[in-house]
Design a protein around this nucleic acid. Structure first.
Length: 539
RNA sequence: GCGCCGAUAGUGUAGCGGUUAUCACCGAGGCUUGCCAAGCCUCAAACCCGGGUUCGAAUCCCGGUCGGCGCACCA
C-alpha cells in the first residue's frame, strides 16, 4: 500500500471520508465527509476565515448555488463549458465538432458520434422547464454580480475584498483520485476589487523580505525568491499578487501543509484562463499524485465585471475622484436642439447621441450623413456647431480589477491528511499517527480512566469529561480496552492530547496528559486542565 | 469517453465449478490488566449489481457500477 491508499483507507475506516451513495453502488466524483472529516474540514474553513475575514478585513457573503443562464452566458462558462465534442475512432483524439469536417484532421480516421461536452450541471427553475438554471462552476460569479450592491455597502470606495465559502459543481468527464477531482466540491474564494493603477498592498512592506519557492513560467526548477526581488524582476506581476501568494503560503502552512512540499507555480501563457493576466498555483507534493494544485491566485483583471456590465447593461464602474479636479479643454459637437428637435421629432434623441459620439476634428463643419436603422439621415451644418469647451473633471469612472485567491478546500483537506500521516515503530509495533496541528484536530482531547473497570476511576473520568465539554472543548471519552490500545486509537485520528485518570488523581486531583506526537506525559491539575488545553490548542 | 487490471465482513485477505465461504486485525460484551495496539472466553459481520452457461457459480461468460493505471478531458 502506498501512502495514498493508507490515508484513504484510514479516512474511510475512521469516519473522515466515505464514497457518497455507497449503498446504491456509489458515484464517481462525490464524497461524504464523515463525523471526523466534517469536523476537520470545518476547522480548515474556520482557519481560512481567520486569515481572510479577520486578518484581511474581507467580508463573507453567501449567494445561490444555482445561477440563472444569463450569468454564465456573460461569464463565458456557457460557451466554453458546452462544446460539441467528437472523438476520432482510430487515434482517440478529441475535437470540437463544429470546427472540423468529416475526417480526423490528425490521422484522417473516421469520427465517432458527436456528444455535448457540458461541464455545468443544468437544471430548470420553476415549472415548465422554461428557464434554465446551472449549478455554479465557481463561487466567484455570485460575488461579481453583486458588485453594485457591494460597492454601495463599502460607500463607493475601492479597494475591498469579499469572500465566499461554498459548493461548486463541475460535471467532470472522468473524476479520479479521491478528493482531487470531484464533481461537487468546496471552494473558498476571495475577490479583491482594486484600482488597476494601484496593485499594491499596505502590508507588503512587512512581507517583502520573505522567501518563497517559486516555479516561474519557463523555469525548469523551482527556485527560492525574495518577494521584493520577484516583483522587481517582473516574475510576479505586482505587489498585490505577491502579497496574496505569501498569504496563501501562510495559510497553507498554518493548516499543516509541510513547507518543503509546497511551491508556487506560474501558469503558462496558454494554460491561463481566458480572463487572467497572471496566475500562480499553490501546489503541494503528494505521495502518489505528484504536484497537485490546491490554490489558484489570479489577476482576473476587469474581465468579469466588464462582461457582466455589457450583458446586464448595468454600470459596474467606480467613480474615482482625482486629488485635484482636472481642467481640460476640448472641442465638442454641440447639437442645435431648436433645429434638430422640430425637424426629426422622435428620432432627435438618437441623432443627438450619435452626433455627440463623433470626433469633432473629423467632422469640421461639413454635412454629416448618419445611418439610422437603415435610413440615411443628413445632418446639415446649421444643425450643430463645433465649440471649444473648458470642462472641470473631478474624477473618472473605471472598472476595478479583481485579484482572486481561490482555494480548493477538498484538495487541501486531503493534503493535510497526507502530510499529517505518519507511521513509526514503537517497541516492535507499528504506530500510526495523524500529526494534525492541534488547532485543527477534529477531537481536541480524549479522557480515559486508566482502568475501564474501576468505578472510582470511571466516575472521576466522566466528571472531567463533562467539565471539559462545558468549557467548550471537543472531548471524547473512552474506557474500553487497555490504555495502550486507547492511546493508539486516538493517535490514528489525530487527537493531540489524552487525559488519563489514574490512582494519583484520586490522591491529588491531577491527571496525566499524554502528548500524541512524543508520547510524553505531564501532570496537570484538574482545575487548570481547561485553561491548559485552551492554551495548548492555540484557541 | 476509450483501453488494460481489479472488486469477498468495518479493514486487509484465502478461495481457482461441489456441504455451513478462510484467516487476521478492528468492533461489542465479559474475565484479566497500575500508562502505550498483551492474554483468555463469547458475540457480531462479507461474495458489487443484473443477465447467461451449468444439476450446481464467489469461482466461467456478457453487460453495468465502483476503484486503480494509461490516453483524453480538467475554461
Amino acid at each position: 500500500m502506498d501512502i495514498y491508499e493508507e490515508v484513504m483507507e484510514l479516512a474511510k475506516r475512521r469516519g473522515f471520508l466515505w464514497p457518497s451513495f455507497e449503498i446504491y453502488g456509489g458515484t464517481a466524483g462525490f464524497y461524504d465527509y464523515g463525523p471526523l472529516g466534517a469536523a476537520l474540514k470545518r476547522n480548515i474553513e474556520h482557519l481560512w476565515r481567520r486569515f481572510y475575514v479577520i486578518g484581511e478585513g474581507f467580508y463573507e457573503i453567501e449567494t445561490p448555488i444555482i445561477g440563472v443562464e444569463e450569468i454564465f452566458r456573460a461569464s463565458g462558462h456557457l460557451a466554453s463549458f458546452t462544446d460539441p465534442i467528437v472523438e476520432c475512432k482510430s487515434c482517440k483524439e478529441f475535437f470540437r465538432a463544429d470546427h472540423i469536417g468529416d475526417r480526423c484532421p490528425v490521422c484522417d480516421g473516421e469520427l465517432g458520434d458527436v456528444f455535448e461536452f457540458n461541464l455545468m450541471f443544468k437544471s430548470f427553475i420553476g415549472p415548465g422547464s422554461k428557464r434554465a438554471g446551472y449549478l455554479r462552476p465557481e463561487t466567484a460569479q455570485g460575488i461579481f454580480v453583486d458588485f453594485p450592491r457591494l460597492l454601495r455597502f463599502f460607500r463607493e470606495k475601492i479597494p475591498f475584498g469579499i469572500v465566499q465559502i461554498g459548493k461548486a459543481f463541475r460535471n467532470e468527464i472522468s473524476p479520479r483520485q479521491g478528493l482531487i477531482r470531484l464533481r461537487e466540491f468546496t471552494q473558498a474564494e476571495a475577490e479583491i476589487f482594486v484600482n488597476p493603477q494601484e496593485k499594491t498592498h499596505p502590508g507588503f512592506d512587512l512581507v517583502k523580505d520573505e522567501v518563497l519557492t517559486l516555479l516561474p513560467r519557463g523555469a525548469d526548477e523551482p527556485t527560492r525568491w525574495r518577494l521584493a526581488d520577484a516583483v522587481r524582476e517582473g516574475i510576479i506581476a505586482h505587489e498585490l499578487l505577491a502579497y496574496h501568494i505569501h498569504l496563501t503560503y501562510r495559510f497553507l502552512t498554518a493548516v499543516g501543509i509541510s513547507e518543503d512540499r509546497l511551491r508556487f507555480r506560474q501558469h503558462m501563457l496558454d494554460e491561463m484562463a481566458h480572463y487572467a493576466s497572471d496566475c500562480w498555483d499553490a501546489e503541494v507534493l503528494l505521495d502518489r499524485l505528484g504536484w497537485i494544485e490546491v490554490v489558484g491566485i489570479a489577476d482576473r483583471t476587469d474581465y468579469d465585471l466588464k462582461a457582466h456590465q455589457e450583458a446586464s447593461k448595468v454600470d459596474l464602474g467606480v467613480f474615482m475622484a482625482y486629488d485635484k479636479p482636472k481642467v481640460i479643454e476640448k472641442r465638442k459637437i454641440k447639437p442645435k436642439m431648436e433645429v434638430i428637435g422640430p425637424r426629426f421629432k422622435q428620432d432627435a434623441k438618437r441623432i443627438v447621441a450619435a452626433l455627440e459620439a463623433m470626433d469633432p476634428d473629423e467632422v469640421g463643419d461639413q454635412e454629416i450623413v448618419l445611418e439610422l436603422e437603415g435610413r440615411e439621415v443628413t445632418i446639415t451644418p446649421d444643425m450643430f456647431e463645433c465649440v471649444k469647451v473648458r470642462e472641470e473633471v473631478s474624477g473618472e469612472r473605471l472598472i476595478p480589477h479583481v485579484i482572486e485567491p481561490s482555494f480548493g478546500i477538498d484538495r487541501i483537506f486531503y493534503a493535510v491528511l497526507e502530510h499529517a500521516f505518519s507511521e513509526e515503530e514503537v517497541e516492535g509495533e507499528r504506530r500510526v499517527v495523524l500529526r494534525l496541528l492541534p488547532s485543527i484536530a477534529p477531537i481536541q482531547a480524549c479522557v480515559l480512566p486508566l482502568l475501564g473497570a474501576r468505578d472510582e476511576l470511571v466516575k472521576v473520568a466522566r466528571d472531567v469529561h463533562r467539565q471539559l465539554r462545558r468549557q467548550g472543548l471537543i472531548v471524547e471519552y473512552d474506557a474500553s480496552g487497555t490504555i495502550g490500545r486507547r492511546y493508539r486509537r486516538q493517535d490514528e485520528i489525530g487527537t493531540p492530547f489524552c487525559i488519563t485518570i489514574d490512582y494519583e488523581t484520586l490522591e491529588d486531583d491531577t491527571v496525566t496528559v499524554r502528548f500524541r506526537d512524543s508520547m510524553e506525559q505531564v501532570r496537570v491539575a484538574i482545575d487548570e486542565l481547561g485553561d491548559w488545553l485552551h492554551s495548548e490548542l492555540g484557541l
